[in-house]
Simulated assay, not measured.
Amino acid sequence: MTNYDYIILGAGASGLMLAYRMALDPFFDDKSILIIDKEKQKGNDRTWCFWENGKGEWDHILTKTWSKIYFGSDNFKDDIDILPYQYKMIRSEDFYTTLLQSIEKKSNITFLNDEVVNFTELKDFVQIITKNGSYVASKLFNSIHNPELYQTQKKHPVLQQHFVGWFIKTKEAFFDDSTATFMDFTVPQNGNTRFMYVLPIDKHTALFEYTLFSKELLQFEEYEEAIIHYLNERGINDFEIKEKEKGAIPMTAFKFSQLNSKHILNIGTAGGWTKASTGYTFRNTAKKTKALVSFLKTENDLSKYHKKSKFWFYDLIFLDVLANHNEEGAALFASMFKKADVKTIFKFLDEESTWLEDLKIILSVPPKRFIQAFFKRLF
């Protein structure tokens, strides 16, 4: 068996971002680090978007930014100026390539193409078994997502943010690439929370993503039929599909921190770093990995990394409402965007809002369902 100070399982956003931060910090120069993943070059398997106030550390690899967003529903629709925020897009191939360039310069960081079979925590270390070998780590960071850990419990509802997206190119200049369609709930809801998400890259190219917040996934063709119908309604009939993507992101207030231990920390989606009420992960991962690198310089017990937050309870109540009244999601979001300032919404969803700003968001949504959910949880 080969011994390492740190082993990172998975080279997706969270695993690579953690390794990248370690590569840039001299504190880790004398630490042996191993990254294990079946694939090193994953290509454009993901599109990450996030809002950010001003300049950010990933601006040099952005594909596109928007300073305006469109929100649409039967009850409220508006083009919203979000400055000084910008809505930012990163394609995963640019992200992977850029981070790996920095990581590969460090002789103390090794990448292993292999498949993890299991890992076991012993008294003073963790043993990792792969298809082709066995390894030992003082600390293990696991980003391999195992849905069974939370899907079998009944205490916290589990929804999915599930979607299929088409990158399309048109001959005519159809798109206003200054505005991103954040949520368009004018699509048929069919008893769920459903919306179209549109990111125009230029006048001829855009990502159309049919998205649901619900418990059950659809058949693949149902997503695609919805995209075709949406395009046809807007007179977009002559187009070429350049790429397709699909995904299902868990939305749950399950306490992932209870899976951590002294020597094992779950990160990314596996660690509950996905914002439970929205499915957004990238910006939270950036903040969490930065905090984790600082934590490792002073602490030895990984179970102490997680900090309790008021936002966990907010997400819990929100998901209770959305799980039990999924058909009311469009009205809920419409009320929020109609009554609250978008900058306050962004701060709230980024878990950076004050108590006063929290109150503004709470007062912007229909109270009945949330009061019911609150007292049900309370008692």
Rank of each mutant, 00 (worst) to 15 (best):
T278W: 11
K308W: 05
K304F: 05
G272R: 02
T285H: 01
A248L: 12
G279I: 10
L265C: 09
K308P: 06
S294L: 05
K288N: 01
S257E: 12
N300V: 12
K288A: 01
E299W: 03
S257A: 06
Y280F: 14
L265Q: 14
Y280E: 03
T281Y: 08
Q258P: 02
T289M: 15
Y305L: 04
A270W: 00
I249Y: 12
F256S: 11
K307D: 03
N300L: 11
G271A: 05
K244N: 15
I267R: 09
F282P: 06
S309I: 12
A253R: 14
S277Q: 13
F254W: 06
T285V: 15
F311D: 02
Y305W: 11
T278Y: 13
S277L: 02
I249S: 04
L259F: 13
T269E: 06
K244R: 15
H306P: 02
S309T: 15
F311T: 01
M251R: 07
K262R: 11
I249C: 09
H306M: 09
Y280N: 03
G235M: 14
I249L: 14
N237Q: 04
Q258C: 12
F282W: 07
L265V: 02
K262I: 07
Y280K: 08
K308V: 03
G272N: 02
F282E: 09
V293N: 05
K304Y: 01
T285C: 08
S309M: 15
Y305P: 04
N260C: 11
F256E: 06
E299A: 09
T252I: 00
L265Y: 03
S309G: 09
T289W: 02
D301R: 08
N237I: 03
S303W: 14
T252W: 09
L259P: 07
G279V: 14
S261W: 13
I249T: 12
S303Q: 09
L296D: 13
E245V: 12
R283K: 10
F295M: 02
S303I: 04
N300R: 14
N237A: 04
K307Q: 14
K307C: 02
S257D: 04
G279H: 02
T252Q: 10
Y305E: 05
E299M: 07
F311M: 07
F311A: 05
I236Y: 01
G272W: 06
G272T: 01
S277H: 01
E299F: 07
T298P: 00
T281D: 02
G279M: 08
T274R: 03
E240G: 04
P250V: 05
W273G: 13
Y305Q: 01
F311L: 04
T274E: 05
S309A: 13
E245K: 12
K288F: 00
K304L: 10
D301Y: 04
L296N: 11
I264P: 03
K287Y: 11
K290M: 09
K275T: 15
I236K: 05
A291L: 15
S257T: 12
F254D: 05
P250G: 05
K308L: 08
I264W: 03
K244P: 00
V293F: 02
R283Y: 10
T289V: 12
S303T: 02
G271S: 08
G268C: 12
E243Y: 14
T285M: 07
A248H: 06
V293M: 00
F254G: 10
K275C: 08
S257C: 05
G271T: 04
K308A: 03
N300G: 12
T269R: 01
E240W: 11
W273Q: 10
N266S: 15
T285D: 14
N266A: 10
S257I: 01
